[in-house]
Amino acid sequence: MSDVVETPVLHVSRDQLIETVAGLRDEGYVSALDVTAVDYMEHPGRTDLPPEVEPERFELVVTLISHTTPGRIRLRVQVPADDPTVPTLFDLFPGTEALEREVADMYGIVFEGHPDPTRILMPPDWEGHPLRKDFAVGRIPVQFKATR
């Protein structure tokens, strides 16, 4: 195989997310490396989900790292399009603050209990969530204050 060590994947539901991450933290996963999301709108036939997991449009992807036995673990959380809310991981890993803000900005996923739910990369008055698959590339008009 190549250089990349396969990361074990856990599928968790939204209600179990906090509990699972807290448990993993106690097991030695000391740091939350990455929080990101995927919009599976155009890729509904994905085959890598186990049968018991109901596919939804959005998927939150959390990567944790353990240093004592070097290794990462990836959590995949299904987030439905009609209720895109997830509990925040801020209280467990404060470092997820900016990463969650980015996901909220780019995908419109709301992190419940997040201390600073503002846009991070896009301007505060931007409409829409650019990384969603229904947000076209190069869409006009460009929404900047000065152009209005």
Binding site: L33, D34, T63, A98
Partner: peptide, 26 residues
């Protein structure tokens, strides 16, 4: 880090870079 999702086509379905500067800025 680079998180990549492929749907079997010739372009990545999703490509995310976990930039160390982005996290370290916090």
């Amino acid at each position: 880090g680079c998180y990549m999702v492929s749907d079997g086509s010739a372009v990545p379905y999703r490509m995310h870079i976990r930039g160390p500067s982005f996290v370290n800025l916090q």
